[in-house]
Design a protein around this nucleic acid. Sequence first.
DNA 1: TTAATGTGATACCTAATGGTATCTCATTTG
DNA 2: CAAATGAGATACCATTAGGTATCACATTAA
Lengths: 106, 106
Amino acid sequence: MENQTQNAFRALADPTRRGIVQLLAVQDMTIGQLTDRFDMTRAAVKKHLTVLSDGGLISVEVRGRERINRLEPLGMAPVLDWLSYFDQFWDDRLNSLKEAVEREEK
Amino acid sequence: MENQTQNAFRALADPTRRGIVQLLAVQDMTIGQLTDRFDMTRAAVKKHLTVLSDGGLISVEVRGRERINRLEPLGMAPVLDWLSYFDQFWDDRLNSLKEAVEREEK
DNA sequence: TTAATGTGATACCTAATGGTATCTCATTTG
DNA sequence: CAAATGAGATACCATTAGGTATCACATTAA
């Protein structure tokens, strides 16, 4: 897929997919192992894995008849980059808020 | 809306909405001004603003017949929090990658 | 080599999403 | 006051998304 920023944000927009990301952060897992953790069919989990793969967030290693899914740290980069664009903005605004609250408290 | 993490991630999952966020980071804007910047109707932009509002990313100030939309820095917090959970993971994995590449280069 | 296991692929369904067209309402302005 | 402006609400439409059921295929185990 071509737009990595869009695909990565889209991949993170679903709660099941964020859950998968959290599980894979602990350890690599097959689709079977992942399916055990969610209340849905293997086919549904497979679709989520495809979206995560399109977003560059996971990769798959074929091992015999098993497929080991693993987190790909580089895939998160476009998301972190996009968000970092606002760092200064958030900081400034949050500091303004904080100062305003402190003035209130006097 | 109740699940802020989900609503915020969902709000950021659409390219138009991320564009709106970027515009509002520069300056507050009315829906009319925003609509001028996108190739869609005011009604469509309004829907995006509703999603952004549900995500806690913007707030609206009524001024006469105008509505001023402004970015809400606090709304991004759930997203940044969720992502920060992986900071260590990304760092470790990216360092492993970097070291591997450096070993290759010798 | 037959059976069991792990997985992928496809067809299908429903609900959500992103968009338009249109109508209404409140606030300015001439 | 009348007209123009800025905006919200709703009905409607096509496409996408998330899910299931089912079938097919490769690999491992008996």
